[in-house]
Design a protein around this nucleic acid. Structure first.
Length: 456
RNA sequence: UCCUCGGUAGCUCAGUAGGUAGAGCAGGUGGCUGUUAACCACCUUGUCGGCGGUUCGAGUCCGUCCCGGGGAGCCA
């Protein structure tokens, strides 16, 4: 039975027989045998395999092995006499499954720039850092599902193709069967009988299920056709959107805080080897940062208080601060990184700069919005209590220039058994970025899609 | 999309006042060694991002387009 290398490395070596299958990272020859470093993706560490020159295929094959070749090794696990590893496997047989021509194989046994690796997205998960990102990303997804499931939330699969436009979340990719550009208008009938696009948010549909099942969450792909070229934006990304009935802004903040602390703890505990790599090679002090986020309370300011703090700081900002403007990156960075040095929740933004569905506060000027800002990333969570009062919502939609007929279903939720409810969106890749310390969001999703880039 | 810096060997980069290119690593060959970014010796490698222009002559100067880094906007 084939075993995973993480298991072989974990068990005490007692001359037990093992079979492992993986890819050769490097080969070192000595007088009478060779060392192979084999990695099967189950963990960061490689398994050191001792290939003795007595092996039948030693001269013809073993000595030709190089980075990238795939092998199946059978042998005996032994205590390693040298430093660097506790376990090593002395091979009885090494079957070469696939060669990787060293003249052409792009990965070398040395550091590569992330920019270069991005050009070979089909090979980059075979590197230490990108493999670690993939494992941590998977664990984070698991932790998020666990968090919500443990609390009795139901996962709802909201549509990827949607006809709900102008959710205030940005440009939509259009979905059409028309073959030629422009043909969609008039000459061809729309497949859905109306304009459709890829979802920019599952929130509105999640609200439908929250007002039936109580607490729900979505976890799926999201698309923005914005021409954004930054280290924090993708055209296709994954978003988690919980939505809770009978829940106000305070309840929303509490859930978001608990969720972040829960998933961070889980990953720090269960991905320690990969996290150690990020801590020492990607972002120094990463683990200390994460532990402090897990332990410390998040700071909380209202937008109005935040504006006061920014003005009181007497700092020169490129964009002068004044009540009513949206907070710029430099403002968020000052508050989050300099003033507090921890995650910061900003609530109660001016109604004029937030979307129609956010609940209007009693002052009539602000809405029950909340953004969670995190050092180094900026906004990681954006949410609000939703407007549950029919008349108020209708007025806000009209003010926003929204076609009411298109949103009858959404207004109906306020017409029949309406309840206070709230929710938020968490950018999954931004979370992975925060957890791994990876500087560019294109490295934390397997196949990044950005303007002008979607190779496979 | 805007500002800014960059694109030279498979990778990371150097290239002086315009005179048709170099290092380290990788790769190849040989040697050595319970090695672990192994080590030592020798050898190979380039449409200098694309197109156009100035010039006797362009990696180097000018224009334009593409791509990447950093910052900004939009946001998650």
């Amino acid at each position: 039975m084939k075993q995973r290398i993480n298991v072989v490395l974990r068990e005490e070596p007692q001359e037990q027989r093992v079979i492992v299958a993986g890819w050769v990272r490097t080969r070192r020859d000595t007088g009478t045998f060779s060392f192979l470093e084999v990695n099967d993706g189950s963990c960061l560490a490689n398994l050191q395999v001792i290939a003795d020159s007595s092996l039948a295929n030693y001269e013809e094959e073993i000595k030709r092995l190089n980075t990238g070749c795939s092998v199946i090794v059978t042998g005996v696990a032994k205590k390693s006499p040298a430093k660097g590893q506790n376990v090593e496997v002395h091979a009885d047989t090494i079957e070469v499954v696939g060669w990787a021509d060293p003249e052409n194989y792009p990965l070398q046994k040395k550091r590569h720039s992330f920019e270069f690796l991005r050009e070979i997205s089909h090979l980059r998960p075979r590197t230490n850092a990108l493999g670690a990102v993939a494992r941590v990303r998977s664990r984070l997804a698991w932790a998020i599902n666990s968090f919500f499931q443990e609390r009795g939330f139901f996962q709802v699969h909201t549509p990827i193709i949607t006809t709900s436009d102008c959710e205030g979340a940005g440009e939509m990719f259009q979905v059409t069967t028309a073959r030629e550009a422009g043909a969609a208008k008039g000459t061809h009938e729309e497949f859905f009988g109306r304009k459709a696009g890829l979802t920019v948010s599952g929130q509105l549909q999640a609200e439908v299920y929250a007002l039936a099942l109580g607490n729900v969450y979505t976890f799926g792909p999201t698309f923005r056709a914005e021409n954004s070229n930054t280290s924090r934006h993708l055209a296709e990304f994954w978003m988690i959107e919980p939505e809770m009935a009978f829940c106000d802004l305070a309840c929303n903040m509490e859930l978001a805080t608990d969720m972040l602390k829960y998933v961070l703890s889980d990953v720090v505990e269960n991905c320690s080897e990969d996290m150690a790599l990020f801590d020492s090679f990607i972002e120094k002090g990463l683990l200390a940062k994460l532990r402090s986020v897990i332990e410390k309370d998040f700071a909380h300011l209202t937008y109005t208080e935040a504006v006061d703090k920014l003005i009181a700081s007497k700092k020169k900002f490129e964009f002068p601060v004044k009540w009513g403007i949206d907070l710029q990156s430099e403002h968020e960075r000052y508050l989050c990184e300099e003033l507090f040095g921890c995650p910061l929740i900003v609530t109660d933004y001016p109604a004029t700069i937030k979307p129609f569905y956010m609940r209007v506060n009693d002052d009539g000027k602000t809405v029950a919005a909340m953004d969670i800002l995190v050092p180094g990333i900026g906004e990681i969570v954006g949410g609000s209590q939703r407007e549950e009062r029919y008349e108020v919502l209708e007025r806000r939609m009209l003010e926003a220039g929204i076609e009411l007929e298109e949103y009858r279903w959404y207004l109906d939720l306020r017409k029949y058994g309406s309840v206070p409810h709230a929710g938020y969106g968490l950018g999954f890749e931004r979370l992975v970025q925060f957890v791994t310390g990876m500087a560019n969001i294109r490295e934390v999703i397997p196949f990044p899609r950005t303007p002008g880039f979607a190779p496979c």
